[in-house]
Design a protein around this nucleic acid. Sequence first.
DNA 1: AATGAATGAGGGTTCATTCAT
DNA 2: CATGAATGAACCCTCATTCAT
Lengths: 216, 216, 216, 216
Amino acid sequence: MTELRHTRDDKLALILRASATMFADKGYHEASIRDISRETGISLSGLYYYFRSKEELLFLIQDHCFTTLYENLGRLLAEENDPYQRFLLMVENHLRYFVNNMKEMKVLSHELDSLTGEFRQRVNQIKRQYTETCSSVLEALAPEDSGIDARVAIYSLFGMMNWIYNWYHPERDVAVEELAADMCQLFLRGYLSGVAERSEAVAERFSTPSPSIWRT
Amino acid sequence: MTELRHTRDDKLALILRASATMFADKGYHEASIRDISRETGISLSGLYYYFRSKEELLFLIQDHCFTTLYENLGRLLAEENDPYQRFLLMVENHLRYFVNNMKEMKVLSHELDSLTGEFRQRVNQIKRQYTETCSSVLEALAPEDSGIDARVAIYSLFGMMNWIYNWYHPERDVAVEELAADMCQLFLRGYLSGVAERSEAVAERFSTPSPSIWRT
Amino acid sequence: MTELRHTRDDKLALILRASATMFADKGYHEASIRDISRETGISLSGLYYYFRSKEELLFLIQDHCFTTLYENLGRLLAEENDPYQRFLLMVENHLRYFVNNMKEMKVLSHELDSLTGEFRQRVNQIKRQYTETCSSVLEALAPEDSGIDARVAIYSLFGMMNWIYNWYHPERDVAVEELAADMCQLFLRGYLSGVAERSEAVAERFSTPSPSIWRT
Amino acid sequence: MTELRHTRDDKLALILRASATMFADKGYHEASIRDISRETGISLSGLYYYFRSKEELLFLIQDHCFTTLYENLGRLLAEENDPYQRFLLMVENHLRYFVNNMKEMKVLSHELDSLTGEFRQRVNQIKRQYTETCSSVLEALAPEDSGIDARVAIYSLFGMMNWIYNWYHPERDVAVEELAADMCQLFLRGYLSGVAERSEAVAERFSTPSPSIWRT
DNA sequence: AATGAATGAGGGTTCATTCAT
DNA sequence: CATGAATGAACCCTCATTCAT
């Protein structure tokens, strides 16, 4: 009885998985409902029992991903007070979810603009919540004056992390834990950290803006 | 006279601009040739005088962008020997071109997979050349052992830089020169650099891998 | 009930008929799917439920025609041993089917080259089988030495028969039975057969090749 | 001077040749003016100096072919009075021209319907003249009563001859002279001529119409 | 809960043809 | 004579979606 009532949810989950894979591989607009029908074995019109439109399907995927990511972060942060550890947890949570759901995350990164109206608003809202949580974790760690613009800082971090679907291969590259540790160190201490003579040599270079010889 | 003879190239340039904007706004597959026709004022079939297929159009854009980016970098590096300055030039060149050609660069980032066959190979080749040049600039600067995986380092840098089309607004955010300076500092010295007590406190945290409490 | 379940096949048959007529009247390439849509009353896209491409549509027609023609011949020959009767049956079968399906046969004659790849191979294969069966019927009848090249003989016969779509009008010309009888006599006994003095007069003429006064 | 004035005609001849080849290979409608432009090396718009429309181009080819064929026949028949020789000349003239201009003749056979209006009328007129001349040659030879319908006879002959573009390969098959001789014998004396016992055995079979067991 | 059949809108592309130069 | 540039019409085909069953 109980199992039977789960049938619907199970099938929906199957559909979401297949769709996310399809959307990631071919892009949202290039992937057709027919592709999903073929992949899931459910007939074209049968699919429409589970969602009302293709856009809702995209929404369901994005909503589920962001919600999970966000809730995971909340759960982890709830048990940790130390700012450094909180930062570390945030990065690792983010990267781990991305690595484990690479296809879905590519969809998240690419296809936000494909949503419209209320769908877009709802995803944007949770995305904003997530971003704010991350920002506050970062700010709790910030030096009084790092000399770095706040938006540049947070979005550079996101850029580092979100870009991985473009190059990261689990079987070839370092494990997620090291990936997280490396990125944390890069972001917090920099590429040259630990190098002795760095302090003055580099510092001096950044003290004066470089001459912009560059034309557009 | 001479100007008149440039008509054809000018129109092609106009088409490429409009197409890049279209592709960036709606995505390559969502943007229709009819959209480009409407935007440029050239008839649908008239456009095909300038390119043989939509895919070639995408190729022309990507090829032009990457080539320009790559050649600009070569020109800048040719006059500079100091590793730090070379790094700075590389980052500034990259960011400046991205900021000045945001639409095109979004297309570059998103639509590489949309090319097939020889088009793809040719763009991939120049992309590889550009990446290698950047990598060598970075390596010339590298500490003996930063403890950070080489691929993680270079792609984190690219991630930081390439992500900007997702958040950077020229009129609202810092100028390109500062953007470049900030990212250089972030990447080279880290977010916490300059903070006195950082050395030991942070270092210790990275010495032992964080406990991975996280399940998939 | 049963009839209702045949709906799909019936519609396909309707489409094939209409398409064959269209292809015959305007030629394969000149006939548009829109024409077929108009003719059948089925929407343009609705047609694609029944075939995957225009080329497949042509294939379906050609395959059906050749297969029917070939199977009919097999059925007729199975019950007849006498070489003359077998020849007669072959000719009558061929002509009757052509006359009854003139449009389709014109398509068969004209549009073999319009097929490509596997479609072409499959039609060519059955065409070859049919030709071979006809050839063997002819050879079983052949005099030891008619003095006529084998290929010239069989293809002259086919030429006579296949050409009829260019001139034959059922309502104006002789009935199929006579058409078949006439062509059989023409082919087997010749136009002058029965004429008394023919034997020597004509024979002599063919004994020496005519002087070729003709320039290219 | 004189040579210069021939330039136009020479180029037109080049265009007609190339077009006929194109039309024969791909069919009239499938061959594009662009194909002809590519083949001749003359620019797309440049071609329109030599003809007013694609249809006129087809007309020029058909008209030239039929006229040449017809005039050649007239020249040959003018010097020959013997009915048998006249028949032979007619067949050989027809076949030789077909073999030497296979591409053009395929166009003639296939694309008569592609002409409309006056173009069609003019080609049809000369075609009718040619057919009538051939018919009269045949009738001059006819037995009082061959028992064969006149239309069946003449069109069977044409069928035999016109079909050759479907199977005849100059390098593989018999020479044109033998081709002509074979077809003449076939048509006049039949496939079984010379076979002694034929007379009664076969004749009897044709005296009674074959039982038409065949349903549509 | 699921499907076969159907559709309107729109996709990229090619075509014969024109016209100013 | 010849061409580069341009166009409207039409092409085949795919799409997300619906609806009776």
